[in-house]
Design a protein around this nucleic acid. Structure first.
Ligand code: MN
Ligand code: MN
Ligand code: ZN
Ligand code: ZN
Lengths: 142, 142
DNA sequence: AATAAGTTTAGAATAGTTCTAAATCTTACT
DNA sequence: AGTAAGATTTAGAACTATTCTAAACTTATT
């Protein structure tokens, strides 16, 4: 069984769990995110999926992305003014934004650190999620 | 000497340091941020300063906020799609966003924690700043 | 006072996103 | 298979937040 089929089944299952159908549009949008995990904008996703499904509309790309976010298959990322970016990495991770190139990288977070971070919250603050964004530059040795 | 005068002088100094002048518009905008530290949007700042300076324009509010950010007197905060919010708290702090009420609170960060967080960065990643956003709800006991 | 530079202003323009309503597709039922 | 109901897609209009433009105003310098 191909990896495409696996993703497709996982997608169908998650959609079904929310009472939604799988569609060619939802598939190509999700596949676009999985193929290049560079946190593309809706416009960038639109440009990429048009290769596979030339008739898809930008509105549909927005609809599909929103659907994937609702199904917890994708995270919407906003760390600066400008278009929302989309990330299919569901593991706990931070984002590193390179201010020089504009690119964004995933940084894995050790499980214990999230606990330590949540410990700074005074009583009465109950956090469901923590977003961590580093800003800076990356150097050659990486 | 009043606290207003103090803020005003600090503002003038910081502006001068960047080769900029102080103006009534820049003063009221900065004062609005200091007076209610609830991370207002440009529109909200505009509504508040109109009491003091009824002739100010929205474009000027945007200009002044941008100027204050450039002078490192104010931080622009973006953690979700929607208007940029502004924060005059220069101490290292995280933001807690209450998803139910929409309000945002400052959470002080112990100095050592920032170090621990930056330690997760692999070699080659050089972070100037770290933004931390908690999302959740606040309860009565706070 | 004249000039230059910095600042403010109203309104036009732009970017990103959401809305609307019609068309198309899928599913369930006869 | 034929039909109705519901879900989804689509193009384009509408909307929101922000930036741009160019003229008016203010302040500092000669
Ligand atoms: Mn950037
Ligand atoms: Mn919110
Ligand atoms: Zn990511
Ligand atoms: Zn703050």
């Amino acid at each position: 069984m191909s990896s495409d089929t696996l993703n497709s089944e996982a997608l169908s299952q998650k959609l079904a769990h929310s009472g939604l159908r799988n569609t060619p549009q939802r598939e190509v949008v999700y596949k676009a995110l999985l193929t290049r995990r560079d946190h593309p904008t809706a416009d960038e996703v639109y440009a990429r999926v048009r290769t596979d499904l030339s008739t898809i509309s930008l509105a549909t790309v927005y609809n599909c992305l929103e659907t994937l976010v609702q199904c917890d298959l994708v995270r919407a990322v906003n760390f600066e003014r400008g278009p929302t970016r989309y990330c299919p990495n569901l593991a706990p991770h931070a984002h590193f934004h390179d201010e020089e190139t504009g690119s964004t990288f995933d940084i894995d977070l050790p499980p214990d650190l999230l606990g330590k971070i949540k410990d700074v919250l005074p009583p009465g603050y109950d956090a469901d999620a923590v977003d961590i964004i580093f800003r800076g530059k990356t150097t050659a040795t990486r």
